[in-house]
Nucleic acid binder design. Structure first.
Lengths: 199, 199
DNA sequence: GTCTATACGAGGATAGAC
DNA sequence: GTCTATCCTCGTATAGAC
């Protein structure tokens, strides 16, 4: 149960664990994993080192927990889109719309997912393009080719042709390179991807 | 015995500096900057710590020297393509062909350029998408729109639509995700990018 | 469950001989 | 220019009290 006076009371138990995760996400995506010490997290989250180590085996496990949770969340969200939408173009549009929205609502989360080099500190995790959400995107294309919406081509080529532009636009946005709000680029980006693959 | 043979003549002077750079490139792209200590470089290059510090101010400067040199090389190579080719489609094809070739010839170099998080250890360097080679790609699109080869749209959208797929394919290749040789995907990748933006 | 204090090692960087 | 030896900071992780 959440305390109404969050400023006064330090978080404990479940809330503390959540606070640590949230703080770690922010610091990792701002400065990177290696530039963030547990002391930094401790200070920013206003907890003790001992508390962190009570909830997480070590720094790597903390990052891993963050990573798999976020990927899982993304996967289920995309999965829901695939249930709701049945044709390839609509699936594509909804997935990209969802990703853009997420980049706006939770830039830190998106940054962490998109541009962190997870393999450098999570050696056991597969590369991000082999992760479940990305496999779902590939699946969208495979089905699109089967039902004739998408022209026949190698599945990876099709997947990158359709989604890579949108992903790159999000990175540009998060890096502060774009001048206009991200949403302003949505429709043109969507159109480009579709022109690349549709039959 | 092989070791003692190699050991015979250690590099010195200019050659030593070059050896350090080459070794650093390999280790940085294999394990990442933070997972590579100067001791690792020292051992792999078979030189002393003192020698490294004589040629480079510190670890960060070593990485920076590597980074700007590689970007500069890439820039001049692309610049030459722009001189040789005058229309947008040919420029695009030649640039991607060049990048794919580079990914095959010098995978370590490409890995270092493409997927390293330079901003985490080179805080003063601009994001890679603002670097000179990337600006050249954007310029290709802007000129393509002016002379009517490319449909009118926002320049960043056009640039990512044209090049992001190829870049992503190289990353997939370097991550070992692709089954076939990279070259097998070249033509389809090129076609997808062009369909996305041509008028 | 949470805290403080501390052990411990790693790695960046320097000093000074040759 | 290159070497070895060493310093010293910093960050992870543990121990043990409450």
């Amino acid at each position: 149960m959440q305390a109404s006076h969050k400023q006064r009371q330090r978080p404990r138990g479940e809330a503390l664990q959540e606070k640590v995760l949230q703080t770690a996400l922010e610091l990792f995506s701002e400065r990177g994993y290696f530039n963030t010490s547990l002391q930094d997290i401790r200070k920013a989250a206003d907890v003790s080192i001992g508390a962190i180590y009570h909830h997480f085996k070590n720094k790597e496990e903390l990052a891993k927990s963050l990573y798999v949770n976020l990927l899982l969340r993304m996967e289920t969200d995309i999965q829901q889109i695939l249930v709701r939408e049945t044709n390839c173009q609509q699936r594509y549009r909804e997935i990209v719309r969802f990703l853009f929205q997420m980049a706006l609502d939770e830039p830190k989360t998106m940054q962490f997912i998109l541009s962190a080099k997870h393999q450098e500190y999570l050696p056991d995790e597969p590369p991000i393009c082999s992760s479940r959400p990305f496999r779902l995107m590939r699946q969208v294309l495979e089905e699109g080719m089967q039902n004739g919406e998408v022209r026949q081509m190698e599945a990876w080529v099709a997947t990158t042709a359709l989604f890579a532009g949108a992903l790159r636009m999000m990175i540009l946005h998060l890096d502060g390179v774009l001048e206009a709000p991200l949403a302003d680029y949505l429709e043109e980006t969507l159109a480009c991807g579709w022109r690349a693959v549709h039959v």
